[in-house]
Amino acid sequence: MSGLFDRLGQELQAREKASGLSMADVLTLPDDLRRLFNWMMRQEEVSLAEVAAHLGQDEPSAQDTLARLIEQCFVREMPAGRYRVRLAPKRGGQLPVNIWQALDEKTEKEEGGR
């Protein structure tokens, strides 16, 4: 499975340090990584043994893979040795300033009327 490892290394080099995984990113990942994330998302939480089985790696190699994914903020470690995909927060703020102003005024009115 050094193929996965090398590609992952290249992927990580090519990307800025992420604040988490975006699902749009998943679409652009190499197949084996994409499958890993799809599977982890559907499982909700996975153990090291399950990751190793899914990747066809031994546990120390799977542990290395997970460590890199954690370092990249794509995965978070949960209590009791479980792992989860860590999703990037949804960024806001894609509207022109004058629309925000209009909405602010509306919000103040709404909150005043609550």
Binding site: L87, K90, G93, T107
Partner: peptide, 15 residues
Amino acid sequence: AGEIARVLREGYDVN
């Protein structure tokens, strides 16, 4: 409207 705007502006935690 204000609450819709807030989500659009500030985003949220997808997790």
